[in-house]
Design a protein around this nucleic acid. Structure first.
Lengths: 353, 353
DNA sequence: TTCATTTTTGACACCGGTATCATAAAATAT
DNA sequence: ATATTTTATGATACCGGTGTCAAAAATGAA
């Protein structure tokens, strides 16, 4: 029934160690031997036992994906991207949803690493931004890659210990640039009073997006005011509340466009507009961020910033693998900064007179 | 750094085997010994190495979740439910998205099972409905649980080999009853011409929901006609097309309500209604199915049938565990049939005159 | 108290690979 | 052709647990 490395070795007439070398693509195997072994592997349909490899090897053949994010689309994309890379490399993926606010979380992650002897970890925001997590991983000496919002500066400007890492283990999503672009799109449509309904303040993406938005206003001689910003969370409900707050008193601020912190917020704003009988995009333009599937399922469809999450996470996995095993994948192929691109749909239009 | 079972044994002054017994909750350990060992486990913060356990043991400490479903919300719920049970039992979860149409899929699943020495598998629709997959799993002699649409009949009525299983490894979602209920809700609102925009014909849920809908019509002396059914897929786009098709020629069929095969279809129908300038629910009632988060994010919010996916999948995992290891959890606690409940929101209303 | 029986515990061989280091074979230098 | 270096392969000790079976301890019966 189950075929082991010994069966293959016998079948190929070599030692098990040679088979091991072949399946691990170690260099010092003669072409001829390699072929013979591979032939045997195929004939017997041999599948190396993950548990055994993990147990015997220095590092294991499993990595972890840790997330605390309610956005199902985001998570699925992340998983799929990492999984596709794992498949390529013959690794397993251990997924670990958790709650950043949970005090036991740190211990929980440590436990997971220890139990599964993980070779590395991919961290998504907002966990990837938490100093104490990073610190712990450094202390544990485990490889990890962080998905972050921002740009790849040579050094982070804070002076704490994480700086020493030369942040060569980060994948950046340039939310700043994307927010700038999408704001510019609105400005080009003639909008002069553009509001921003933010996501969670603790998330770096929020500050990045906000900064990009502000800079775009500034570069185009548009005035910024605190009345134009609503601080909420990355949720539909927050979008509803945000739009209501921003447009209060019969839109006293004269807002003609709202930039949603993500698609859910934008969808919420859309919903609120309906409640307030505001026509989109005739009276008000609304844009999202992320291009999740449901940005195509609202009415009208959302203008948004497209973020290729599965591609991003695939590169995160690549980067992680390049740091663990005999980095087969060339580091050169790894993109470490992604900039979402504006996708124009029906929720934005020319500013009303 | 890493604590092994031997460290614990030494610390507790017992043999490693005894420690093994304790962490596996085997019965034949004296209370006093148990306490001493547990104390040592705590003091050293011992975490059993998963790989070693998997390798040494008869069955491994990992189960798999296989799915082919584009619905992110559904998948995340499924994962979380199974995951929570796994955590409870100290198991790992190997997730495996795949494509039912992929000819290699069968081999792929077999490979996964072999490589990870999975103790069992949870199958979601539509994979759980595919005979050849079930057949393969039976041949492999691996434990599995199927999530199915339908009711728990003592025996399935088809005569093939899967019947022999006495289907005591299935969790049912009674889509028939739910569709009946939701149709009845519409009937009670005075609707007489109710259409059904179906999901994928290959999915059992589609036939179940359709049957429930038809039965409700029948029981209420309402006429059914093929013109009232649109056969599509479980997607937003299909919902758009479905609504357009059903309401064609200025709604010649006189439809006053559309039952969507799932929330996405309903959202699509909602979208199409906007295109056709049809007021919801004044001119047309639309209902969804599943109660996914975005049924609350459409305008108006969708009436739908709530399905507790994470609870369902948790019970699927329970059932699986009850078949593998020393079934700690009592089978009695396991619910094997779930019936979604109607959630009334704003997308359905009284039939127009 | 002694012996038989049952319950707890431990010694040790595995599970299926990888790592190390020695050895054999091939390539190169003399 | 032989000595020397390099490269390819193999023998064997682990990795950290579990399963088996036998020994030790506790319990009950005589």
């Amino acid at each position: 029934m189950k075929v082991t490395i010994n069966d293959v070795a016998k079948h190929a007439g070599v030692s098990m160690k040679t088979v091991s070398r072949v399946i691990n693509k170690e260099p010092s195997v003669r072409k001829k031997t390699y072929d013979i072994v591979m032939q045997a592997v195929k004939e017997l349909n041999y599948q190396p036992n993950t548990a055994a490899r993990n147990l015997a090897g220095t590092s294991s053949f499993a990595i972890g994906l840790v997330y605390d994010n309610p956005n199902a689309y985001y998570i699925i994309d992340m998983q799929n991207g990492v999984l596709s890379r794992c498949k390529e490399e013959g690794y397993e993926l251990v997924i670990h949803p958790c709650s950043a606010s949970d005090p036991d979380m740190q211990q929980e992650i440590a436990t997971m690493i220890q139990r599964s002897r993980l070779a590395g970890l991919v961290l998504t925001p907002p966990l990837s931004e938490q100093k104490h997590i990073i610190q712990m991983l450094d202390d544990l000496g485990i490889a990890y890659v962080r998905l972050l919002s921002g740009q790849n500066h040579a050094l982070e400007n804070d002076q704490d210990s994480t700086t020493e890492h030369k942040n060569n283990n980060c994948i950046y999503v340039d939310d700043y640039a994307a927010a700038y672009e999408i704001t510019e799109h609105l400005i080009n449509l003639g909008h002069k009073t553009i509001a921003f309904a933010c996501g969670d303040a603790e998330h770096k993406s929020t500050t990045e997006r906000l900064a990009g938005y502000k800079q775009a206003l500034n570069d185009n001689q548009l005035e910024f005011s605190d009345a134009l910003v609503y601080g909420g969370t990355y949720s539909f409900e927050s979008g509803v509340e945000g739009a209501k707050a921003l447009l209060k008193n019969n839109n006293e601020s004269g807002i003609t466009a709202i930039l949603g912190g993500n698609d859910e917020i934008a969808a919420g704003a859309l919903f609120a507009s309906r409640l307030m009988n505001i026509a989109i995009p005739e009276q008000l333009s609304i844009s999202g961020f992320e291009d999740s599937p449901f940005s195509r399922q609202t009415w009208p469809k959302l203008t948004t910033a497209h973020q290729a999450n599965s591609v991003i996470s695939e590169h995160a996995a690549r980067l992680l693998f390049s740091k663990t095993r005999g980095s087969r994948s060339h580091d050169k192929d790894i993109i470490t900064t992604f900039t979402p691109t504006v996708v124009i749909r029906e929720s934005t239009g020319p500013a009303p007179k």
